[in-house]
Design a protein around this nucleic acid. Structure first.
Lengths: 220, 220
DNA sequence: ATAATTTAGCGCACTAACGCGCTAAAACGC
DNA sequence: GCGTTTTAGCGCGTTAGTGCGCTAAATTAT
């Protein structure tokens, strides 16, 4: 039985906003934190580069919509999108009343297909973007830096050769430096990570000098 | 001219969710962090205690809706609500497709009117609540503790006798202890705050012993 | 076989923060 | 006037973290 309120109205009888999701997809490429931009289709009123986004469909959670958007618009299989902020200015979109729920998603660069109409841009050099997409990137960068400040590679960005996902301290540090946007002192970094990693007992390969030990995250 | 997309549809032709706002109003009463609960009207399908909330109306921002909700449902003039999280399970509400944007608002206890159908409950002893209201309170407590960890009374909770809003170190510390939920060592607290406060040059009154100096936040 | 390179760890000097006991100062109570 | 109470600040011992130079170990290059 369909619900009606004290005024005899159902929820659908009231005006409602469209709800969009926009996602700042962050990755590390060439030791730099980058964001994925896609080109708007010609039919859109505001063309140019922007963050991938879509409208929320019935039966979906926001994360479902983010995943659909990244798959359809950018060929990226998203992982675990996290909410950042809701942009709610009633006049923010010329098409009508639209709320946008900004998200962060983080994927390894090798999972972002190279194709026309999309590119990875260093977050330190983002061009002007429509809507609130510049602000969304700012939120996303703050959120990923916060997460990487307290845990080893929480989003799985380390691109390791090992099938079991283990990595060297140097590989881990290079990713953390890319996210942080500045150099990290190796000794302090090791001490911070010491209690959060466990030694696999195996050694890495492929470089001169003493081979590095392979680690995985504690509790994995 | 009203916008239509490539399929000749306007935004209103597509199904859209109702958007609600729910607010964890936090305050300090009797040196304890408390949350405001209101009683649901009898006509609602789910009666009992809950957080104040409402549906978003056209032309409003989320903060507008929060303010209207707190004024109408609880007689509280809200200050600056902050977004916490969007609860988006399509099946979370029996009435239909409803998203809820959870918020935090912080007010001094003397701004919460005492009236039937509402009460302040210590966050350490919240009863079971409908929907995701328990989770919302959890988010809110985490957010306020984070904010109070790095700045002197960011939400203006100190209930001072001074017309210019200045306060003593002890008054400030008692509020920070209520928010943190544990005791703070006075000397360490003073050292942390030293650079964030400025001395008004005036002294407080009303207690035995050396009167305390009055401070205000630096940059106020 | 030796030199060069890289890694992991540590000793050490230094910096920063904590918590407590103590003192001086400034009020009130008697 | 003196005792009591409260506040602000500090000295000090302790704990924790940082960055660097150094060493030993384990590889590759010559």
């Amino acid at each position: 039985m369909r619900y009606v309120d004290a005024a005899g109205m159902s929820l659908d009888d009231y005006p409602r906003p469209s709800v969009a999701v926009d996602t700042a997809v962050l990755t590390v490429e060439h030791r730099e934190l980058c964001v994925l931009l896609v080109q708007a289709p010609e039919a859109e009123p505001s063309t140019g580069w922007r963050l991938p986004g879509t409208f929320l469909h019935p039966g979906e959670t926001l994360a479902d919509a983010v995943a659909r958007s990244l798959r359809d618009k950018a060929g990226v299989e998203g992982l675990r999108p996290e909410q950042l902020h809701v942009f709610d200015d009633p006049g923010r979109d010329d098409r009508g009343w639209v709320l946008s729920v900004a998200h962060l998603d983080v994927v390894r660069a090798d999972r972002v297909p190279v194709r026309t109409g999309q590119r990875l841009v260093p977050v330190a050099g983002v061009p002007d973007l429509p809507f609130d997409h510049g602000a969304i990137i700012g939120f996303a960068v703050g959120a990923i830096r916060d997460r990487y400040g307290g845990a080893p590679d929480p989003f799985g960005l380390v691109d390791t050769a090992e099938p079991d996902g283990s990595f060297t301290l140097r590989e881990l540090r290079l990713v953390h430096e890319a996210v942080a946007g500045h150099r990290l002192q190796p000794d302090s970094f090791r001490r911070m990570m010491r209690g959060l990693l466990e030694d696999t007992g195996r050694m890495g390969v492929g470089r001169r000098g003493k081979p590095a030990e392979l680690y995985r995250r504690r509790g994995e």
